[in-house]
Amino acid sequence: MIWLTWRQFRGQALIALAALAALTIFLVALGLRIRSTYDANVTDCVASCSLSSAREVMEDAYFETLLLSGFLVVLVPAIIGAFWGAPLVAREVETGTHRLVWNQSVTRTRWLAVKLGFVALAGIALAGALSLLLTWAASPYDKLIGGRFDPLLFPTRNIVPLAYAAFAVTAGIVIGLLTRRTIPAMAITLAVFAALQILVPTTIRPHLRPPVTETVAFTADTKVSEFSAGTDGISISGYGNAVPGSWMLSGRVPLLDADGKQVARGQINDCFKGDIRRDMACVAQKNLHFTVKYQPASRYWTFQWLEFGTYLLLGGLLAGFAFWRIRRGLS
């Protein structure tokens, strides 16, 4: 049964291996370039260099490349689910070959177990290899820039892509079992995976652990994208570096003075002269602060394991449903 599965799957496996080889060469070369840039701007930097300028250099050089590479890592589990998982049962049912296959000496549950196990392990290995390569390549960048919780970065690093692949395969199989049509099953699998990649970071992941609430002093290094003047006073947004490496969950927040009252426009208007660094230094001298909610950087691996376990659990439940459904028979 394993030999037969390999015979049926070897074309897709060879294509995947060729793609993995090409991406390995690209990511290794990218990782070496990133390390060279990091050494030049951080490790071997003289006293006159600053971390802020090093961050700017790294972001300008590698942000878009790493973003596209991460998109590929997240796309791989979706492709695995749609092109490997969805046709696994749907194609057999659609062509009618399941009547022959499931009436041989191999039971339908054993047939599904071997097929699912083979494809799932291959998908997990492929997603894991790409995730490992990208995590290694981007590690100096991530160390310097921070932001590992970023919704565009978190699903592309370390262990969560492995769980995505396992879930995508089982989801594709179940959708194929229910639709019994290959093309619709593939399309629905892609849509479900894409929907989860939007839903999880926006509504589920932020609440896996209770956020920390903290009062932060406004300093000259606080990066603020916007000062908003409302009826109650000044509010700020875009203060992502207020707690380095953390995941900010609060949006626009009021800027408060030493007495805890919201700052009025007139209190800081005289600071804005057009030079952003001097403007921020001027505002910082007024002893201001603001309150934020965030997930600390120390919880990164906790969130990785929680999301990893959640997707594995969902995949396991879907696999259980697939075995239950296939034992009932398909007319």
Results as ranks from 00 to 15, higher is better:
135 T>K: 05
210 P>W: 10
36 S>G: 15
20 L>N: 09
33 R>K: 13
174 V>P: 02
64 E>T: 15
224 V>F: 01
239 Y>F: 04
275 D>E: 12
106 V>H: 04
72 L>E: 08
77 P>E: 07
24 T>P: 01
297 A>L: 03
295 Q>F: 09
94 E>G: 05
145 I>C: 06
275 D>F: 08
21 A>G: 11
119 V>L: 10
192 V>W: 01
86 A>F: 04
53 S>F: 13
200 V>R: 08
113 A>Q: 08
179 T>A: 14
167 F>N: 00
9 F>A: 11
216 V>S: 03
49 C>M: 02
278 R>D: 14
153 L>G: 13
22 A>E: 11
129 A>Y: 08
200 V>K: 03
129 A>G: 06
183 I>K: 12
67 L>E: 11
27 L>W: 10
57 V>L: 09
287 N>A: 14
160 V>D: 00
208 L>M: 13
257 D>H: 04
40 A>N: 09
110 R>L: 14
247 W>K: 09
281 A>D: 09
179 T>N: 10
176 G>A: 09
134 L>V: 01
74 V>C: 10
257 D>W: 03
226 E>L: 08
155 P>Q: 03
5 T>A: 13
314 L>R: 03
110 R>W: 14
62 Y>C: 06
244 P>I: 01
309 G>Q: 00
293 K>V: 12
241 N>F: 03
266 G>Q: 12
210 P>M: 11
68 L>V: 15
305 W>N: 07
224 V>A: 00
233 G>F: 06
205 R>P: 05
287 N>P: 08
146 G>K: 02
267 Q>N: 09
77 P>K: 06
84 W>P: 06
124 I>D: 06
229 A>H: 15
213 T>E: 06
287 N>T: 12
243 V>P: 06
54 A>V: 07
258 A>K: 13
128 G>A: 02
156 T>G: 07
64 E>D: 14
58 M>L: 15
295 Q>V: 14
175 I>Y: 05
128 G>K: 02
44 D>W: 10
109 T>D: 10
185 A>W: 10
108 R>G: 03
188 I>K: 03
13 A>D: 07
138 A>M: 03
312 L>T: 00
245 G>R: 00
29 A>E: 12
111 W>M: 12
273 K>Q: 14
258 A>Y: 06
61 A>T: 08
327 R>E: 08
310 T>H: 11
72 L>V: 14
49 C>N: 02
79 I>P: 08
53 S>V: 13
237 S>P: 01
39 D>S: 14
297 A>K: 01
172 G>P: 06
331 S>K: 13
221 D>S: 12
87 P>R: 02
241 N>S: 04
300 Y>S: 06
183 I>S: 12
62 Y>E: 05
292 V>I: 14
90 A>T: 07
253 V>Y: 00
246 S>W: 01
66 L>C: 05
23 L>P: 07
109 T>C: 10
90 A>F: 08
274 G>H: 05
318 L>P: 08
291 T>N: 09
129 A>M: 10
79 I>G: 05
63 F>G: 07
36 S>F: 13
155 P>A: 01
164 Y>A: 00
150 D>K: 07
147 G>P: 06
129 A>S: 11
